[in-house]
Amino acid sequence: MSESHIRPALRADEAALGELDRDTWSPLHAVQPRPKPPYGSFFDANHPPEHFLVAADADGRVIGYIRLVPPTPLACNQHVQQIQGLAVADRARGRGIGRALLRAAFDEARRQGAVRITLRVLGHNKPARALYESEGFAVEGVLPGEFYLEGQYVDDVMMGRSLTA
């Protein structure tokens, strides 16, 4: 990951993030249909720039992102942050960028006062699940057959880990 760096997203990243999101769409991780033109905004009221960290290459081009948000607006849940999106450009895969984004999200969650981090992943997404497990996430729940994608029922897997250990 030496030729890239991670930083907070900027409003100016919107076009690049939208393109990355469309380019990395896959039934392996997406529950929404493939995006079609006209494309909406990447950022909106529920997805503001401050919820994203981006990985940029040495030339400053966006090659990945992770979205980190509170799982609920409840005060009693403020000690938890949730990953709700992770993407790495095909041209940048295999260089540890996904792992670096996860670790940056851990640091940011801790900075925000979180002691726990969670995520949801589709059961058939073995590469993502392996990455998450290698970074300390454990399966904490499964909703069997929660989604019907491309002719098959797919589990929704909840994973989490402590940020204090």
Rank of each mutant, 00 (worst) to 15 (best):
L163Y: 10
A128F: 10
P48W: 08
V115C: 14
V88F: 00
Y39P: 01
E140W: 14
L20M: 13
A114E: 06
V62Y: 03
P35Q: 11
P35N: 12
Y153R: 15
L119N: 11
I6F: 02
A104M: 02
I6H: 00
S41Y: 04
A12C: 02
S4F: 15
R120K: 05
V31F: 06
L17E: 05
D57E: 05
L20F: 13
H47K: 12
P71Q: 07
G98E: 01
N46Y: 10
Y65I: 06
A12P: 02
P35H: 10
L28E: 14
A87I: 00
Q81F: 06
Q84A: 15
V80E: 05
G141H: 13
A109G: 03
R22K: 12
Y153F: 15
G40M: 11
A56T: 15
E135H: 04
P127I: 12
M159R: 04
M158N: 07
A58G: 12
G113V: 13
A165W: 05
P35S: 14
A16R: 10
D107C: 01
Q81M: 14
H47W: 11
R111D: 06
R111A: 12
G85S: 08
F43A: 10
R95I: 00
I63C: 13
A16L: 09
A16W: 11
S2M: 06
Q82P: 01
R111M: 02
P49T: 09
G60P: 14
A30C: 15
P127D: 10
K126N: 07
L119Q: 10
A92C: 05
Q32T: 14
A87Q: 06
Y132F: 15
G145N: 14
G98A: 14
E140Q: 15
D23V: 02
D107A: 15
R22F: 04
G40Q: 09
D107K: 06
Y132A: 10
L20C: 11
A15G: 03
L53G: 03
S2C: 01
E14Y: 04
M158T: 06
Q78L: 09
E135P: 04
I63F: 00
